[in-house]
Design a protein around this nucleic acid. Structure first.
Lengths: 230, 230
DNA sequence: TATTCGGGGTGATCTATGTCATTCAAAAAC
DNA sequence: GTTTTTGAATGACATAGATCACCCCGAATA
């Protein structure tokens, strides 16, 4: 299943932003231990609790990142799209993954040994600096998710998720999604049944239009109001 | 109100772990722009949304860090105790504070310009590395809080908070706390009334003993079971 | 001394949301 | 071409937990 995407990192036009801070010799070091892997829909890239050996950079498709709680309940904390690398906090503390990454659709990713990346962080300040920014933004995102989940009601959370899908993840409206209703529920901290119900009320009120995997936002500003007022 | 604690950073036996990675000249640079401030109970050290100019290191007392949502609701995401520095993710992205820091009791803190710290991160790899570890651990803590808040019921969350207070924050049992019931509620994602109610049931069941600001855990293992089973 | 005020504590409601059970359609498997 | 599986959709019901309204008490304040 392993499948080379590009001859090497130097030529790669798919490389993540932070790699632009690396010089040729540094890129070659990365390239030497890089493998490109193709994942089918639903396949696990790494699993919460397992040791983290590799740094993952998504080059095609869509990958969901989620926390696994007791009894099958999941919380989606984010997605990785081309070209995002996945920041794994465990790499800097207990060498374990603290969330699971799964391909939502046919996806490819480059894997690089974490040791190499950590070496580069030590020698290349610019690289380290853009890394810190990424990490910080992830933390800020978690703050917002925590506030939203504990303080907003279901319609507010759902409105937020729909806006996020259209603006950030798919960057189009309408958008065709490979996410299930369960995934949307996991993004908004509710059960699948509740997610479907809220989406139906939104549909009945003319806020959105859904047809299978296609979702269109009809009244953006009203949806934003709902998202703000919880 | 400003009040010098120590002549300078070199002599300071109160300095945070990460500063042990700095040499004398680096410590002097930190010292040159360092101010030590004394805060009274309830005083704000920095406020969510405000620009972040300073790196804060708590040298005495207890500081709570919380997210402010709509309508007065708060979520305590952590505490800073001697000698902790407060990681401010905004320093690496939008230069804004994303949570508020308030002294729970009489506290002192050293403030250092963020620019100095960011310079040091660029020049001292060891310093940067221990910084990354700290950031990562904060992210992992947020994952746990998010899972707990969305998946556990009130008794589970309260049990968790009580154990955390005794083991991590005060490291004693019984412990005398300067936190109000509202603070405990903000830590466990519930209203003050609910927090009081749950604590009463714990008291009635012989799990804990409370008297004013003193809390004692009587049955640790049963509390842990409750915390694990939600 | 009288009074205000902040925090702790309690009970009576109300409701947002989870749970469970069931149907339906489409896709996949045999 | 049946049969099985999977996800979407919907209704009935139960309940965890918020909200509101109130009391009590000690400390600060007038």
């Amino acid at each position: 299943m392993a499948n080379l995407l590009h001859a090497n990192c130097l030529m790669c036009r798919m490389k993540s932003d932070i790699f632009t801070t690396l010089n040729d010799s540094e890129l070659n070091r990365v390239n030497d231990c890089r493998v490109s892997i193709k994942y089918h829909q639903g396949e696990i890239i790494f699993k919460q609790g397992s040791p983290c050996h590799d740094f993952v950079c998504v080059t095609s498709g869509l990958v969901k990142l989620y926390l696994e709680g007791e009894g099958d309940r999941r919380i989606i904390i984010g997605f990785a799209r081309p070209v995002d690398y996945i920041f794994v906090p465990g790499a800097f503390s207990d060498k374990r993954h603290h969330f699971t990454a799964v391909a939502c659709e046919e996806s490819t990713a480059c894997l690089v040994e974490v040791d190499i990346i950590q070496d580069l962080l030590k020698t290349n300040q610019e690289f380290a600096s853009s890394f810190m920014t990424k990490v910080s933004e992830q933390a800020i995102g978690l703050f917002e998710q925590l506030t939203s989940f504990t303080q907003k009601h279901m319609p507010g959370r759902m409105a937020e998720v729909l806006i996020c899908l259209s603006q950030k993840i798919y960057q189009s409206n309408p958008f065709i999604t490979s996410l299930t209703r369960q995934d949307i529920a996991d993004m908004s901290g509710m059960t699948k049944e509740s997610a479907i119900r809220i989406m139906k009320t939104f549909k009945d009120e003319g806020l959105i239009l859904t047809e299978g995997n296609s979702i269109e936002i009809l009244d953006f500003s009203r949806l934003e109001t709902i998202s703000r007022n919880g």
